[in-house]
Write a protein that binds this DNA or RNA. Structure first.
Lengths: 362, 362
DNA sequence: TTGAAAGCGCTAACAC
DNA sequence: GTGTTAGCGCTTTCAA
């Protein structure tokens, strides 16, 4: 266990004090270049690596970040949060920080399910990904521990949130349909109480307004309670039963879009010949549907990386970073969208990127 | 940061020395019950939680376990390794240990991609899940760091391995088909160099031998290089082209089984009326195929938990634990299997559990 | 059964 | 610029 050189060995070898080695290590004070080189050389020769725990104790920091999400989010088939985590973990390497990933049950009880690292004070800050229980987020606030919410915005709190740009994404999706020549564009979305879904509906409406197209209630179906393929299927079924014609459909996410495709195909409506479809999220399954799904791509790794950077900044400056950050989204055009039957002037559109991070749009 | 009671506060409040508090905490020496209670009470009153880093420095342990897997394994759509990790993380709580999850690229270079915690000595042991590069496993061996391989057995090393019971699982699958009355049972499997796949083929053969059925080469197709649905589809296509009749098919995993189903259905062979199919792994998609897939279930969380327990034992005893451990598997009967057309005496079979952990079978 | 004291390997004031 | 001196909050001998 105790194998490996310590700072003491380095100090001796370089004929300086331990303090100097520490200063070089953390390039704190200005050190004469010559001594710096001597220390660096000793470090290399001894293959010295600072012990993370020792550093933690002395600096009164743990050097760890907690990453919390509910177990169902994590073990879901679509590796959405997994990729966010990956982005976080990768970014954390630049800061010499470690990520402690833990899941909490969906039915969260604060007495039994509170992540240990919160009690142990074994993290300097936490990342909360996806929908987390209010009891937990309130506890974190109360601890006054630096934190960032990812892809979720708790009701009782503004700020410290990193999300994908739902509003812009939805707008891009619907604009794409409009550009193709569609006028009657339907929307399906479940769990409309979820802030992300609500924003996507808002984007849909906004794009229609922009184009001076009417917002027709009979083309909006958002009563389902979840956003799985089955919900998409049911929502589309309802839409069809209203007999209000539409040539395109924007689904609040790819999962629902896939359900919608099944429903439409069952009814003999070819995609995109009869109905164009756009989804949201760019999940893997969407690339393998027949036809492949046009969608809005979200950079999950970037979401995780941005959140970590903000958190590190908060930890270093000991200040809250006000505002939400929205990470870019982009339109990915595949084969599920085309000009409506009989259209004359559908513009040709290719993948559109979206500029940079927008702050505080929400 | 420095908020929170320390051992000193507890000692004062309980009118004992810090050493005594420590002893109570780790119930090391025999402490008089009365003092123990006094200490415990003080701990509660002060809501004391030992600082993880301080403990680590003093005990010369990090209190962390590293969990290493390749990034493609981790972000794969089927949350196989994710669930293994979940099992590990959950189990680690009992030991007051934290898991440091890190991914390595598939194209691993030891100079640039070696997990930091190995350099920092920030873990007391490591778990390596799935196929990991030889360069890495050799480095770990060389560090003499306690380690357990999960679902993978490096060529250069026996022991310290936890796997699902591939041999038994395959045997159960094929026995099930035999019990239903099948005699002509095909096998498809890709990447036969992978130890797990090889074991499954072995189990297939063993079950046939047991039942005194011939092992027919023309019913075995294992030339594909991977085990994805496409490979299953191709393998089945080859099988059919040989015109050797079969009434049942055992696929080396569910992914291939799904591909096989597509192929057979395309050729108008109804499942299970014309051909029965059994897969392996019990992935989620298998429950939603038409018909739902009979398969071999693997308890992924348990796999992770068992691996952690073994690792902890190695850390505590400072000894290697020789031998491989095989975690149980069970047959899950769904609708993709039935007696062959015209069968008279297919036994009715329900889910069969498999007894307990077998050591060193492989 | 308990306490005193040393020390784990590093950082952080404050001198010089 | 660099060294000295204290710790950080625990565990761990070794005595008593």
């Amino acid at each position: 266990m105790s194998q490996g050189a310590t700072i003491k060995d380095v100090a001796q070898k370089a004929r300086v004090s331990e303090a100097t080695v520490s200063l070089v290590l953390n390039n704190k004070a200005s050190i004469r270049e010559e001594t710096r080189q001597r220390v660096l050389k000793a470090i290399q020769q001894l293959n010295y690596h600072p012990r993370h725990v020792a550093r933690g104790l002395a600096s009164r920091k743990s050097g760890n970040i907690g990453f919390i999400l509910t177990d169902d989010h994590f073990s879901r088939a679509e590796p959405f949060y997994t990729k966010i985590f990956l982005g976080t973990e990768f970014e954390s390497r630049k800061y010499q920080y470690y990520i402690l990933l833990t899941t909490i049950p969906r039915a969260f009880h604060i007495e039994t399910d509170l992540p240990r690292f919160l009690r142990d004070r074994n993290v300097d800050g936490v990342l909360l990904a996806g929908h987390v229980p209010t009891a937990l987020s309130e506890h974190v606030l109360q601890l006054k521990m630096p934190h960032v919410f990812i892809d979720f915005s708790p009701r009782h709190k503004q700020g410290n949130v990193v999300m994908m740009d739902n509003l812009l994404g939805a707008t891009l999706a619907v604009r794409h349909l409009i550009d193709l020549g569609h006028h009657r564009i339907a929307f399906i979305g479940g769990d409309i109480t979820h802030p992300s879904i609500a924003k996507r509906l808002e984007g849909y409406q906004q794009a229609l307004l922009e184009a001076q197209l009417p917002i027709a209630d009979e083309l909006i179906e958002s009563a389902e309670s979840d956003t799985a393929p089955e919900d998409g299927l049911r929502a589309t079924e309802k839409l069809l039963s209203r007999r209000a014609p539409f040539t395109a459909l924007f689904a609040a996410n790819d999962a629902m879009a896939i359900g919608a495709m099944q429903c439409l195909q069952k009814h003999g409506k070819q995609i995109p010949a009869k109905v164009s479809i756009v989804g949201f999220d760019d999940i893997e399954a969407g690339a393998h549907t027949q036809p492949p799904l046009t969608t809005i791509r979200v950079d999950k790794e970037e979401l995780g990386a941005v959140a970590l950077r903000r958190l590190m900044e908060m930890i270093e400056t000991k200040k809250e970073l006000p505002g939400k950050v929205f990470t870019p989204v982009e339109l990915v055009v595949r084969q599920s969208t085309a000009p409506p039957a009989g259209a004359t002037n559908g513009k040709l559109v290719s993948a559109i990127s979206t500029g940079k991070y927008n702050i505080d749009q929400g």
